[in-house]
Design a binder for these strands. Structure first.
Length: 456
RNA sequence: GUGGUUGUAGCUCAGCUGGUUAGAGCGCUGGAUUGUGGUUCCAGAGGUCGCCGGUUCGAAACCGGUCUUCCACCCCA
């Protein structure tokens, strides 16, 4: 006997209700992307390994799903290598392709490859699944969707301003209020590292700093010490841990800390511009905050760093992130092409909307009305009407079998179909229809025109 | 990748320190109700207790492995 079928860890099936709700989110995003002037592209679900490997740090390489070569994949591996059991060395010989890990790197590859066809600045959006060989948790899957909007070929900070507005617009349209858009700037982080004389430990330093709100000042300092950052340097960070107040106040205290760093001051002025501009324009529902400890994200960010947190009442990691990367296409041989982009985590946004009950009731309605089947003669009468209604763009259906009415009504009820139409012998004679509202139980007798306007 | 946790009917879960034929609620099927669903009543179907192995006279329960779930770390959407 075959054992019960199953799906791989961290993957999911979606039932009709779930797909409909996911599509609702996709629609909101797609419309917003379009309204902001982004154009859609798609890239393959798998890339050449060399395109992906090494782009996300050591941790990232581990999380990339590798695809085994076809055919005799051990052919290129020598007996010595096999005996040594050196997985890392063997991997590159038995696997030349890998599943997409995010949408940004494939996009960079796309830009370089199609640079002569693209008109810059190029604004593209991309909604596709990505895969990570991570250990699943709540809101963390091995297959999930990212929805990215990026602009390449412009260094203007107006892009950052627009992306903040795009976040605000999407979350507002999803009725998700009080999202927090946290912003930082990589130049500020570099500036701090410079000021404390630990430039070469930038990554270790930022990773530790990023944990501040989670583990507290002392543990952050411990981690910095563990990574070899000097006591004197940690001492100089003192003011950083006490940065508080409004966004502009935070910027001011940073200014005194970073006065001696040209890079740091550049980061501050960038942040200041974005902040002031947004302040002028105003956001609808999101809050824009400065978070100097925000350092997550990939090592390729060079300017702005974004992260969006869900409203405080739901416990969920970030539901979006992004930033500016001045040199991403450089990896693929195209210099001086600055890009900035943001990403939405569809699956996490879904969980948040579900938890807060924010899906509109109407998204679940699939079929508007169901015709009861009274037999072939009546079904023929119904089918002509069904065709007419479908021409009008109304989703209607005929119950396929001639069974007891109770069963047919029960079917409509369970499927959440709001109307049932009875068209039996008496209705046929008077060329009418009995329309039953399943919510109120009310029934009325209508002719075809009335039926159409009632269902529209 | 490290540490922990979970798995019993379609779903949510009981099942005491191992002891006959494994239970409940909801759901499902049929009937009460041959042109009226959601309520009520009656009847019924459905489980190799995640999987493999071990301990035992006897395992859903104890042990080991494995898969899965969720959680923390790492990292991230």
């Amino acid at each position: 006997m075959a054992s019960k079928p199953s799906i791989p860890k961290g993957t999911r099936d979606f039932n009709p209700q779930e797909v409909v709700k996911r599509n609702y989110i996709f629609d909101v995003m797609r419309k917003a992307f379009k309204r902001y002037g982004f154009q859609p592209i798609e890239t393959p679900s798998f890339e050449n390994s060399e395109t992906l490997m090494g782009k996300y740090g050591e941790e990232g390489d581990r999380l990339i799903f590798k695809i085994l070569n076809s055919g005799d994949y051990l052919k290129k591996v020598s007996d010595e290598e096999l005996a040594a059991k050196d997985s890392a060395a063997i991997t590159s010989k038995i696997s030349e392709k890998a599943l997409r890990y995010d949408l940004t790197v494939p996009f960079a590859r796309y830009v370089v490859q199609h640079q002569n066809e693209i008109t810059f600045p190029f604004k593209r959006y991309q909604i596709q699944p990505v895969w990570r060989a991570d250990r699943p948790q709540k809101g963390r899957f091995r297959e999930f969707y990212q929805c990215d909007a990026d602009v390449v070929g412009s260094k203007s900070l107006w892009q950052e301003v627009e992306l903040v507005q795009l976040y605000d617009s999407v979350f507002t349209n999803l009725r998700l209020r009080n999202t927090v858009i946290k912003m930082n700037n990589r130049k500020i982080l570099s500036g701090i590292a410079e000021v404390i004389g630990e430039e070469d430990k930038l990554i270790d330093f930022t990773v530790a700093l990023d944990k501040l709100d989670k583990i507290g000042v002392e543990k952050v300092k411990d981690e910095m010490r563990a990574k070899g950052i000097s006591e004197a340097a940690i001492e100089k960070l003192g003011p950083l841990f006490n940065v508080s107040g409004s966004a502009l106040e935070k910027l001011n205290s940073l200014k005194s800390l970073l006065a001696s760093s040209e890079t740091g001051m550049k980061g501050i002025s960038e942040l200041e511009f974005i902040l002031n501009t947004i302040d002028e324009i105003q956001l609808k529902t999101a809050q824009l905050e400065i978070d100097v400890t925000l350092a997550r994200g990939l090592n390729y960010y060079t300017g702005a760093i974004f992260e969006v947190g869900a409203p405080a009442e739901v416990s969920m990691g970030s539901i979006g992130g992004g930033g500016r990367y001045d040199d991403l296409t450089g990896i693929f041989g195209l210099k001086d092409m600055s890009g900035v982009g943001i990403s939405f985590g569809l699956d996490r946004i879904y969980l948040v909307l579900e938890e807060l009950g924010l899906f509109p009731e109407t998204v679940l309605e699939s079929t508007r009305a169901l015709f009861v089947n009274f037999g072939n003669k009546e079904a023929m009468y119904a089918m002509r009407t069904i065709n007419a209604l479908r021409e009008e763009g109304i989703a209607v259906d005929l119950y396929p079998d001639e069974t007891k009415m109770g069963k047919q009504m029960g079917y409509a009820d369970k499927r959440g179909i709001p109307f049932v139409i009875l068209a039996g012998e008496s209705e046929m004679q008077s060329r009418t229809y009995t329309l039953k509202n399943m919510k109120t139980g009310e029934q009325q007798t209508l002719d075809i025109d009335q039926l159409v306007s009632e269902l529209k």
